[in-house]
Simulated assay, not measured.
Amino acid sequence: MKLYIYEHCPFCLRTRMISGLKQLDMQYEVIMEGDAETPTRLVGKKVVPILQKQDGTHMTESLDIVQHLDQLAEPSYVQEVDAPELEQWCKDSADAIYKLVVPRFTKGQFKEIATDEARTAFVARETRVFGDLDDLIANSGEHLAKINQKLLELEDLVDTREDVHLIDFKLFPLLRSLSIVKGLQFGNKVNRYMQNLADKSKVDLLFDQAL
């Protein structure tokens, strides 16, 4: 099997999580930013992640891929559990998170933007959505304050989490994205949660790229 991904992408990270957790024999292929031909050839549109299944067919949508891969072997991770506080945390935090992480992603060290051409395409794409990215970084204060408060609230919500369920495929990719942001205050419990899932999933955190 093969996963076509961006390294920075939180939706792609969901698929990397399940592959790592289940120790699947998975190939990864990073699609360059600005490369619309490859995904369009595979699935008819520019999108990631894309899974090439064992039968050679392809599928998209990150949580659909997670659920498909979860069915291939035991144990099962994609279980619906009652976690309304965590679901609400993700919903309430998402806008500020993306305004913090997206402009920093464009300055990061990821294979999909390893060329000047690809990085320029990435900046142009995100500028169309978010506006001036340098201004967003320069004026991060409001969003930093909000997310620092949300991270404080998250401490007790993740304190006793041991098993991996569906909500973790939504929460952890957001937190991993935030690890590229300097000035955030990750408490001990959130840090432990993040490192535990990073280790189990065999994915990297981004603290070494924080800006």
Rank of each mutant, 00 (worst) to 15 (best):
C12N: 03
R14Q: 10
T15P: 01
I18M: 01
I18E: 00
S19A: 15
L21H: 01
K22H: 04
L24K: 03
M26E: 07
Q27R: 11
M32Y: 05
G34N: 06
A36D: 14
E37F: 09
T40Y: 05
R41Q: 14
R41D: 13
V43I: 15
V43M: 07
G44C: 12
Q52G: 07
K53I: 01
G56M: 11
T57V: 02
H58E: 11
H58S: 09
T60S: 07
E61W: 06
D64C: 03
V66S: 02
V66G: 02
H68Y: 15
L69T: 03
Q71D: 13
L72R: 02
V78M: 06
Q79W: 08
E80A: 11
A83C: 08
E85P: 01
E87S: 06
E87G: 00
W89F: 15
W89T: 03
S93V: 03
Y98V: 07
V101I: 14
V102A: 06
P103Q: 13
P103H: 13
T106V: 13
F110W: 08
F110V: 03
K111L: 14
E112C: 05
A114W: 04
E117I: 08
A121V: 04
V123P: 04
R125G: 07
E126A: 04
R128Q: 15
R128Y: 06
D135P: 00
